Amino acid sequence: MDSDLFELQSKLVPEMVDLLHERYRVLKFIETAGPIGRRPLSLMADLTERECRSVLEALRELRLIRVAKEGASVTEEGSRLLSSLGEAIDQWSGREALARNLTAKLGIRSVKIVIGDCDVNPSVKNLIGKEAAQQFMEGIGDGEIVAVTGGSSVAAVSPYIEVFDDAKHIHFIAARGGIGNEIGLQANVIAASFAEACGASYSAFYYPESLSSEAHEIFKKEAIAQEMIAKYEKTDCVIHGIGDAQRMAALRNANEEERLYLQEHGAKGEAFGYYFDENGKVVHRIRTVGIQTEQLLKVPLLIAVAGGSSKGEAILAYMASAPKQTILITDEGAAKAMLSHVTNKK
């Protein structure tokens, strides 16, 4: 649809814009999570069950979805419409302009913004995962070693990874040795899920918790550690999350002294076990074996995934020193929060 014509139509029938965005959003969620029942879909799309039923009926009559016993799923026609309409919707909604603006301000390769805010609707993380998976499958090319970090945002990517040409030559590894208690969100488990999704291989790397500095130096000389360090030097792609500094410290059961240190030194964001202040300076790092910030500079495909308005400052802190080839996949909540922080800082 011509953008000028759409603008004229929206002025004449302004409610058309809201209806278009609502149906597109619901259709996008069905594509991401389908087949899905009406009740979970209404929660995902933040609609009442009555509103959700109305939208589903309209989409079914347009033959954009099919409704069966197991729930609603997108038809081929619906998939084609989403594919062809996506760019226009991003333009009309202002997401395209917001993405361009942030890309320029952050000085990275690109920013991709999905609908919604993870803090308001956790299901938005699925949209981030789906977009990141697409970027990975399109960009990996003949890359062989892919390192992934832990965390819920990266874990949301693997369900949307599919078997693709030459996936068998890819080897997934953890971006750093596994630590922490949330087994399902550890890098080793997520690396395995990526490999299983596309028929690739993987190797686990476990780093013992609470090692002293002396034991850490000894562990680094072990064969398994040396093998992983060599792989980090040859990594072709990294998919990673970005965390809030204080929240990550709490998840790692950091003692009061360490948390106070992070607060006093202005730590805002965390990635790869490094803590960054608002200027991108590393103010602290945990003791582990993993990919180093200087090694990231040589990695051809870097995909960062993080969303939610509360993550705005954390993402900006990491992005202040992020490699220029980084692709950031985020949501509207985080994107608007970042732009607000950048604007108010001036």
Rank of each mutant, 00 (worst) to 15 (best):
D2V: 02
D4R: 14
L5G: 08
F6N: 05
L12I: 09
V13F: 15
P14R: 08
M16Q: 11
V17S: 08
L20W: 10
H21A: 08
E22K: 14
R23W: 07
K28F: 01
A33L: 15
I36G: 00
P40D: 00
E49K: 12
R50D: 13
C52Q: 05
R53G: 14
S54N: 14
I65G: 03
R66W: 05
V67I: 14
G71N: 02
E76M: 06
S83T: 10
S83N: 12
A88P: 05
A88C: 08
W92I: 10
R95L: 07
E96C: 08
N101F: 08
N101I: 04
K105A: 09
G107S: 02
I108S: 04
S110Y: 01
V111E: 07
K112M: 04
V114G: 02
D117G: 02
V120H: 13
N121P: 00
P122D: 00
N126G: 15
K130E: 11
K130Q: 14
Q134T: 10
M137S: 05
G139A: 00
E144T: 13
I145D: 06
V146H: 09
A147F: 04
G150W: 07
G151S: 08
S152Y: 07
A155D: 10
P159G: 03
E162H: 11
D165L: 12
D166M: 07
A167F: 11
A167G: 04
H169V: 03
H171N: 09
H171W: 08
F172H: 06
G177I: 04
I179L: 14
I179Q: 12
I179T: 11
G180F: 07
I183W: 12
G184E: 15
L185G: 03
Q186N: 14
F194A: 02
F194N: 02
F194D: 01
A195H: 06
A195R: 10
E196L: 14
A197E: 04
A197G: 05
G199C: 08
S201N: 06
S203A: 13
A204R: 12
Y206V: 09
Y207Q: 01
S210G: 09
S212L: 03
S212F: 09
E214R: 15
E217W: 10
I218T: 15
M228S: 10
M228N: 12
Y232C: 02
E233I: 06
D236F: 10
G241Y: 05
G243C: 03
D244L: 12
D244N: 14
M248K: 14
L251Q: 12
R252C: 06
N253S: 12
A254R: 11
N255W: 10
E256N: 11
L260K: 15
Y261N: 05
Y261M: 11
L262G: 02
Q263V: 05
K268P: 00
K268T: 01
E270Q: 12
E270T: 01
A271S: 15
F272K: 04
F276Y: 13
E278A: 13
N279M: 08
G280I: 01
H284R: 15
I286D: 09
I286A: 11
R287L: 15
V289I: 13
L297P: 00
V299I: 04
P300G: 07
A304N: 09
G308Q: 03
K311T: 04
G312D: 03
I315K: 09
Y318R: 09
A320R: 12
A320H: 05
S321K: 10
P323G: 03
Q325I: 00
I327E: 03
G333T: 01
G333D: 01
A337H: 06
L339P: 00
V342S: 10
T343Q: 15
